[in-house]
């Protein structure tokens, strides 16, 4: 009887056999019971198959979870490193955004300190004072000539070296200025020596400057508490 049911279900019967089978189902209680058994047996086995597969998937789930748990440590490391990089970038961005540009700071310093140089008001006519007056009258080239004349006579005159360098900087003769400031920074017996700081300032203005050198100079100013120390701190932060 089971085979007959199966043939019907698998559509292996002719149309008339099908109709005959369906009519038989209405009258033959045994056949109907057998049919119900067949169906229920099929569903029961299907469910068993599904339950077995579910159990297998559950095992797989545990395996995947264990594997993921094993990955937690490297994941934490990776996340940590990524977070640090983001923080560092954020900090750098914050500083960059909130700090005035190095060039602006340098310009401000030059404007505030190298626009007018200190002159003695006693009508002294020595060459240095004449050069300074010319400088303050914005006659920079003439002032430069005076300072260089003094250096011709006395090449270790620290005041003349300093002002010759400042004038060269104002005249945008950066290489010349750097030369004077280097010479100034080498002077050992000065109470206060701004040579390194001025050299760094000039290098900043000379955009092609070696960044490492600028940083090295600024750091030297800061570390040795040289003249220009507080400005050097501002410059080094903005100088990236």
């Amino acid at each position: 009887m089971l085979e007959q049911i199966e043939k019907y279900l698998n559509q292996e019967t002719s149309l008339s056999e099908r109709q005959g089978f369906e009519n038989q189902l209405l009258t033959n209680k045994e056949l109907a019971k057998e049919f119900a058994f067949y169906m229920q047996a099929k569903v029961a086995n299907q469910e068993i198959g599904k339950e077995k597969r579910k159990a297998e998937f559950e095992e797989l789930r545990k395996e995947i979870s264990n594997r993921s748990a094993g990955k937690i440590k490297p994941m934490i490391w990776i996340s940590g490193i990524a977070a640090s990089i983001i923080l560092a970038l954020g900090f750098w961005w914050f500083l960059t955004l909130n700090s005035p540009k190095t060039d602006t700071l340098a310009d401000t310093y030059i404007q505030e300190h190298f626009e007018n140089l200190p002159v003695k008001m006693d009508g002294n006519t020595d060459s240095l004072q004449i050069g300074l007056r010319l400088f303050n009258e914005q006659k920079l080239s003439e002032a430069q000539t005076i300072f260089e004349d003094i250096l011709q006579r006395k090449n270790s005159d620290s005041e003349a070296i300093k002002y010759a360098g400042i004038t060269a900087l104002r005249l945008k003769k950066y290489d010349k200025a750097i030369g004077y400031f280097q010479s100034l920074s080498r002077q050992k017996n000065l109470y206060s020596n701004p040579g390194k700081f001025y050299q760094a300032l000039t290098l900043i203005k000379q955009h092609s400057a070696n960044k490492k050198e600028v940083k090295f100079l600024l750091k030297a100013v800061i570390d040795n508490n040289l003249e220009g120390n507080s400005e050097a701190r501002k410059l080094i932060i903005s100088y990236q």
Partner: peptide, 30 residues
């Protein structure tokens, strides 16, 4: 329990089968 192929049967036959089929019987069979 009602598989697709039973749903396609004529209503009378389907009604008879529906009465004979129950979830409890499937549990017993399992």
């Amino acid at each position: 329990p009602m598989q697709d192929w039973v749903l396609a049967m004529p209503d009378d036959a389907k009604n008879i089968l529906q009465k004979l089929i129950s979830d409890n019987e499937i549990i017993v069979l399992k």
